[in-house]
């Protein structure tokens, strides 16, 4: 019985807080959804978006699944429809899966855009395209081939074997490999489950299993420092190179020590910033199809191609420039 009294008390507490809350202000409400809330990549997107929200004077919501989960994304969109936000910006975990929920939001008068990963074109008005998967795949493969002198063995560490974006990048890496670098050989692809620790163990095993290994390419943010730590501990700095898709902050130490040669990434902070600007412009009907350029605050004029707003080429962070980035 105590439990039930407790429950009631708790629920009334909720009631009270709901009543006591300030009435919704008239500011524009922008809802931003990452693929996974805990991922450093999206945390830095959030930082950029918050800066934009301050500049534009809008309210920003930022919520998503704790770990990537297509079903959860749908549910959060439903919540935002309930709240009646003005514009939703989603990084879609699953292209088709989220389309139904997004169309429902559009029917409810909410503007929808996507960033980072697109949904079906009819379920959103614009896509903030940070760099195509093709661009990522090619940049990584080109960097890898350059570091290995065009020949040698390399291995890939991914997040999970089932993660959509990882598969997409890997496909383009393999395509570039087949097309341009006959001397390079991809010997193994290992999952890290997005765990830094597991990536470290996998990299250790890879180096002893493939003694001729020249390079490890890590495709998810936590795996890059994991692989670098393994190379450092194996005493193979310089002999086995590490590159990957990662954030500068987590990798700065290894890049500056020369363990990791470079990390490739678009500027995620700018991606969040640009996304927020596009979202607000769409909500205020300031950005319409047919535009070829879009002024995005401190970023200046960004290129628009059809219904894609382009952030530009992926950026290569190296020893020389990585110290300048705080995300």
């Amino acid at each position: 019985m105590k439990l039930f009294r407790g429950c009631l008390a708790l629920l009334f507490l909720g009631l009270l807080s709901a009543v006591a809350a300030p009435a919704a202000d008239a500011r524009l409400m922008v809802a931003l959804m990452p693929k996974a809330k805990g991922n450093a990549y999206f945390i830095s997107c959030k930082a950029g978006a918050e800066r934009a929200a301050r500049e534009l004077g809008v309210e920003l919501l930022f919520d998503g699944p704790a770990e990537t989960n297509a079903a959860k994304q749908n549910e959060i969109v439903e919540n935002w429809i309930t709240l009646g936000v003005d514009v939703i910006a989603v990084a879609a975990e699953n292209r088709e899966g989220i389309a139904t929920a997004l169309r429902k939001a559009q029917r409810a008068g909410i503007k929808v855009i996507t960033y980072d990963a697109d949904t079906l074109p009819d379920a959103r008005s614009f896509f903030v395209n940070q760099a195509t998967p093709e661009g990522i795949g090619q940049t990584l493969m080109d960097e890898a081939a350059r570091l290995c002198g065009g020949n040698g063995e390399f291995a890939i560490i991914t997040a999970t074997l089932t993660a959509g974006n990882q598969r997409e990048w890997q496909k383009h890496i393999e395509a570039r490999l087949a097309a341009k670098y006959p001397g390079m050989k991809l010997v193994a692809v290992r999952p890290s489950d997005d765990f830094k620790d597991r990536a470290q163990s996998e990299a250790t095993a890879l180096m002893s299993a493939y003694p001729k290994l020249k390079l490890i390419m890590a495709l998810c943010t936590p795996a890059v420092p994991g692989a670098a730590e393994a190379v450092k501990q194996a005493g193979k700095v310089g002999q086995v190179k590490v590159i990957g898709l990662g954030l500068p902050k987590e990798n700065r130490r290894y890049v500056q020590e020369g363990v990791t040669d470079c990390v490739v990434l678009w500027n995620t902070d700018q991606l969040g910033y640009l996304t927020a600007y596009v979202a607000v412009a769409v909500a205020r009907d300031q950005l319409k199809l047919g535009a070829t350029s879009f002024p995005a605050g401190t970023l200046g004029a960004m290129r628009v191609e059809g219904d894609n707003v382009l952030l530009g080429r992926p950026f290569v962070f190296t020893k020389e420039n990585i110290g300048q980035f705080e995300f």
Partner: peptide, 18 residues
């Protein structure tokens, strides 16, 4: 789990799931 996420204040906390 679903009901909590319909309360505006909770949605605005950005942590309805948690």
């Amino acid at each position: 789990q679903n009901g909590l996420a319909t309360i505006p204040v909770v949605i605005r906390l950005n942590a309805a799931g948690e």
